[in-house]
Design a binder for these strands. Structure first.
Lengths: 151, 151
DNA sequence: ATGTAACAGTTGTAAATGTAACTATCAAGG
DNA sequence: CCTTGATAGTTACATTTACAACTGTTACAT
């Protein structure tokens, strides 16, 4: 009947996502000067070692133009190199440089600590509940995406 | 030890918040041409009937400049009126016009339907878990805000 | 009363973003 | 071959946003 914004699910989720991200961004923003999109691309490259820009866009759910600019910024710091595919010259295989990997290995523990601290504060039961809820939400939207694709 | 972006809590929350919001925005964006910040201010005004811009900023967790511009947009559609406070001429008491209220009453059921449909798809158990998790997260960040204030 | 600090709200400006258009490449059919 | 359509990635432009500076007003101590 009546809508209370503070209790409205999309709004709550947005608010919380914002809080968590602001919290987490301290590590990569203050110390490394990375933006959120740069951090995402960077985190993926550290994790999967070699990817194309399109793959990064897919896994980070960012627009490809956003990815393009994030990669450009990371390239300027010499944190990544691009190698053109031998067979398909449209493709670029992107990987972290040694320099980039060193930064990655310095940054990851800090990011993980932020997360584990937060989880500890939440408590096991609440965290389990949160995970269950997020999993359920995610599969819900994964399904919808598939429906759209099969149109 | 290793960071998997897809499982990283701030990232997951961001991703989901985005999905939910895109889903929910269909109603207010396509049919009413409202932006997200306009929707938020509008929803609060419909809910609390009279507020100042600062209050709206506080309850919607938006920057006051964002609120200022959202209110300007809503005012242009004649959805709200401003009345200056008698005692403190810095303050503006903002309320929806009859016109704005009519729009509000048309929009709210659609927004609520989007939410209830989603909750139904989630299932009771998952929704309860989600709520528990979000509540816990929220109180965690509410606490932190207090800590900051008391500094 | 007067100066200083705080507050409400707006505006200016630079950076970030989304959308569409663009370049270059490939693949497949005629 | 050559045309058509798809794909990878970049660039251009319009919109949105954040952040700081600004105007006008109040409160309060001197």
């Amino acid at each position: 009947m009546s809508l209370v914004l503070e209790q409205f699910l999309p709004y709550r989720l947005n608010r919380l996502a914002d809080s968590l991200s602001k919290n987490a961004s301290q590590a990569y923003k203050l110390e490394f000067g990375l933006s959120r999109s740069e951090w995402r691309a960077f985190a993926l490259l550290g994790q999967k070692s070699t990817m194309t820009a399109t793959e990064i866009a897919h896994f980070s759910t960012m627009d490809k133009t956003k990815v393009s600019r994030a990669l450009y910024a990371l390239e300027k710091r010499s944190w990544l190199i691009r190698r053109q595919d031998d067979k398909d010259r449209r493709l670029e295989h992107i990987a972290l440089t040694t320099f980039g990997q060193q930064a990655y290995e310095k940054l990851v523990p800090k990011m993980l600590k932020i997360e584990t601290d937060m989880i500890a504060k939440l408590g096991d039961a609440n965290f389990a509940a949160l995970k269950q809820g997020l999993d359920a939400l995610e599969s819900l939207f994964a399904d919808e995406a598939m429906v759209q694709i099969s149109d």
